[in-house]
Design a protein around this nucleic acid. Structure first.
Lengths: 206, 206
DNA sequence: GTCTATACGTTGATAGAC
DNA sequence: GTCTATCAACGTATAGAC
């Protein structure tokens, strides 16, 4: 029963449970506002166990962010799936909207980290993200040069896509209240995704 | 010297100082994450003085939010300055962009409050904001009916405007890093504002 | 790997001298 | 109106029995 293999399995399961719970709690209260006690409570584990798997609160927070970055990489790559601007933008916006729907807490942890001055993600932003944005800006500029889309400012377009799609995750509570307090159904959300796609495409003349 | 008039003046000045500092600190760390000690330190006041002017942390937080709502009302009214969609949207987007530039902390406190589930602003969102959105949605639907703009979903348009313009306040740190670490100048910001206006107008066919 | 007990700093808040 | 001293509650983190 107490074989190494079994112990590793328990470890993986508990780490995953804590990471998932921590993402939710950090999303709700931010890094400073969240407490290990609350994370432990919601994961139904003794507080000491959280410290057993993650030495410090900062360690745990860092790993939560790393998890989010993994998914970020995936949605970022969707931008390059097609060379045609219409298909590329549609695919990317859809991927971002799906992420906002499926991982709203991840989006909020990110937002809260940036609002706190990005002390942990600074390096990522200045290296990987900056490189990605610079390259995508070049692609968009190419589309403009070839007359495939209207002459828009690449960065302004990317920031509009980010701001809009992340709004659906970060401000979910507000959207629900404005929706009359009714939760947004999958059907509704698909419709909203299409509307966002159409607005973005129209904004560049597609 | 110690006349009532003088004391009232001192009170007003200190309250304003504390409110301004608190907005910045709440913006950085959220309600739970912020501490009275930090607010007092940054305002260069003893901790007890903060409690003297604002009985509890929640009291202070509420008043910070009320201040932000006052400004929100003002920018909201800019939507109705013109009946023509092009002028109305331009004026509104410009007002929101100006707010993001001049009161980035206010925007972030709002964002952090919503991400925390809007425990304090819930009533405002469900009453005043909902009414405002419903009415503006009706106006936008009218523009579509009259063929003045493309057939867009009113709410999707409003959320795009909010998400995009607030992104410039809430994610300022990220934008600066993506800008190569250089602060965004007034000149640059005016250009970005124009780009956002153009994207929004184009998104509805204007 | 689990969990109780505990160390020890920081928090929100107050009392009371000035 | 200002400010030091203080308190109970809660924060992170660890020790050590099981």
């Amino acid at each position: 029963m107490s074989t190494p293999a079994r112990k590793i399995k328990i470890r993986k399961a508990n780490e995953a449970l804590i990471l998932e719970t921590a993402e939710r709690v950090f999303a709700l209260s931010g890094y400073q506002g969240a407490s290990i006690a609350q994370i432990a409570r919601e994961a139904r584990l003794p507080k000491a166990n959280v410290h057993y798997y993650f030495k410090t609160k900062l360690d745990l927070y860092r790993q939560v962010l790393e998890h989010i970055l993994d998914d970020w990489m995936e949605e970022a790559s969707s931008f390059d799936e097609y060379a045609d601007p219409k298909q590329a933008l549609r695919t990317y916006v859809q991927a971002k909207m799906e992420f906002s729907r499926k991982r709203p807490f991840g989006s909020r942890v990110w937002a809260s980290e940036i609002m706190a001055g990005a002390p942990v993600m600074e390096r990522f932003l200045g290296t990987i993200l900056k490189k990605w944005v610079d390259e995508r800006a070049r692609i968009i500029r190419g589309w403009v040069r070839d007359g495939k889309i209207d002459p828009v400012h690449p960065r302004a377009l990317l920031y509009m896509i980010w701001g809009t799609t992340q709004h659906y995750a970060d401000f979910e509570r507000q959207l629900v209240i404005l929706n009359g307090g009714k939760v947004i159904t999958d059907r509704q959300y698909r419709a909203r995704t299409d509307q966002v796609v159409n607005l973005v495409l129209a904004s560049v003349g597609l």
